[in-house]
Every structure is written in structure tokens, then in C-alpha cells.
């Protein structure tokens, strides 16, 4: 399943979507950035409530397919601009991390 298909199926609100054709592969939930970098796998949908600028670098380096901000978290415009520039897909949704993961599992597993 592609990022844009997931976004559409879960009605995720797009903040940036420079690479919507990227294939997703699994899901990882976490807010401690180094923990996420050490554990998330390439292609994962990364679900977090962390919204500072460093999430963009972590997403790039861990090579996740997109970031989904849970529970209605949003980002400042500066974060949006950097995510766009670095080609990082970024979404927000009112759902909890658990609800998002459960729906991803239902769609893809």
C-alpha cells in the first residue's frame, strides 16, 4: 500500500506529501527520537506525538515512509517547510496512536 492510499483510507490530514507514491511497510510508534531511530524500520509509518523540527531529520535518517502525528498534534510552519524540502511525508489525525496502528494493521497485515 502506498502512502497516499493510506492517507486516503484513514482520512489523514496532509501537512506535506512530497512522496505520496512511497510504499509503506509496517508501523512504528514512539516519541523518544533516538529510540525510534534505533528501532524503526525502513518504510515504516512512524506514529508520534512529537512535533519539533528534529522529527524531520529522524524520519529522513530512519527512512520511514511517512510521519503520522496522532491526537490532533500539528507542527509549526517552519517544520512543515523543512519536511517539504527534505521530501518527508507528514500527516496529522485526531486518532490515537493505537487507533492508527490498528487500522494500518487491518488494511495491510
Amino acid at each position: 500500500m502506498k502512502v497516499n492510499e493510506l492517507a486516503s483510507a484513514l482520512r489523514l490530514q496532509s501537512i506535506t506529501e512530497p512522496d505520496g507514491e512511497r510504499e509503506i511497510d509496517g508501523c512504528y510508534i514512539g516519541d523518544l527520537l533516538s529510540w525510534v531511530m534505533g528501532r524503526a524500520q525502513s518504510g515504516n509509518v512512524w506514529v508520534t506525538i512529537m512535533s519539533n523540527i528534529n522529527i524531520v531529520a529522524v524520519a529522513t535518517l530512519a527512512d520511514v515512509s511517512c510521519i503520522v502525528l496522532a491526537e490532533g498534534v500539528t507542527v509549526e510552519d517552519s517544520v512543515k517547510a523543512v519536511a517539504e524540502a527534505k521530501g518527508v511525508n507528514l500527516f496529522t489525525t485526531p486518532m490515537t496512536a493505537y487507533e492508527i496502528a490498528a487500522k494500518i494493521a487491518a488494511l495491510t497485515v
Partner: peptide, 12 residues
């Protein structure tokens, strides 16, 4: 509070 300081840097 920025999400760092988890004590995972050197181990990673």
C-alpha cells in the same frame, strides 16, 4: 522535552 536524552545515543 525535545525527545532526546533517552540514553540511546552511544548504544545506537
Amino acid at each position: 522535552s525535545l525527545g532526546f536524552g533517552a540514553g540511546m545515543g552511544l548504544p545506537n
